[in-house]
């Protein structure tokens, strides 16, 4: 316990600890990711040529689903215990609070999933040459998932069965990063130009980072008033 600390740095540290969680919310998401990826060859048959063709795309879809898991708690846990009131009362704007929560969510829950992503794609039969691009697209998509997902989480504050509501709100918004990310990897795999897909993915993520905090702050204000 030291003397005066920067409030926002303290918030970031606390959010990281909460997102990582005792016993690891992030680890559950990784286990879920591995589980979904394991079901695919069981369902479609293990023929390598068939599986290898869809591996990058399948890995991306599973990544999007796994990213949903811990989103529900992002604002809900603070809403339930009144912490959201105190965060709203702080001197930092709610937009910044929301952005910090999403960044911590990305680092604690999104990054481990992104690190797992190339492993899963290769295990499903993707070429090892794709590993760097899969890692980069997964990291970028994870950032977009965290911020866009945060909007869903803010809208679902206080709702019964909020987790399902978050998924229903957010999954349609997850389609662009899945299309661009998996598209870029697919393009590289077929020897085509892959930079376009990556640029579109990055553009999506930047827009999410820039705009989502305003929507989240509005959702939070609405929920606590």
């Amino acid at each position: 316990m030291s003397a005066r600390k920067n409030p926002l740095a303290a918030l970031f540290k606390r959010e990281l600890a909460l997102a990582w969680g005792k016993g690891g919310g992030a680890l559950y998401a990784c286990a879920f990711y591995a589980g979904v990826a394991t079901l695919l060859p069981l369902a479609s048959g293990p023929a390598p040529e068939k599986l290898g063709a869809v591996a990058p795309g399948a890995a991306f879809v599973a990544l999007a689903l796994s990213s949903l898991l811990s989103l529900e708690r992002l604002f809900e846990r603070d809403f339930e215990d009144g912490g959201l009131d105190l965060l709203a009362l702080g001197s930092a704007p709610l937009e910044l609070v929301a952005a910090i929560k999403c960044l911590a969510q990305w680092l604690a829950a999104g990054a481990p999933l992104a690190l797992l992503s190339p492993v899963i794609a290769v295990a499903l039969g993707a070429s090892p040459a794709l590993i760097p691009l899969i890692l980069v697209t997964s990291l970028a998509a994870g950032l977009g998932f965290a911020f866009v997902g945060g909007v869903g989480a803010a809208l679902a504050i206080g709702a019964r069965r909020g987790g399902v509501l978050v998924a229903v709100i957010v999954l349609p918004l997850f389609t662009p990063p899945v299309i661009f990310g998996a598209g870029a990897v697919d393009a590289l795999n077929s020897g085509l130009d892959w930079t376009g897909g990556l640029m579109l993915l990055l553009a999506y993520c930047l827009c999410a980072v820039a705009l989502a905090p305003f929507a989240m702050a509005a959702g939070v204000r609405n929920a606590i008033s």
């Binding site: 316990m1 005066r4 409030p7 215990d81 009144g82 959201l84 105190l86």
Partner: peptide
């Protein structure tokens, strides 16, 4: 108020340290 913003899974020291930092 009735709801104190304290997280059950964290220690009292961690929570005290955070909320004092948050309020400056």
């Amino acid at each position: 108020g009735h709801y104190d913003g304290l997280k059950g899974g964290r220690t009292a020291g961690e929570e005290l340290s955070f909320w004092s930092a948050w309020t400056g």
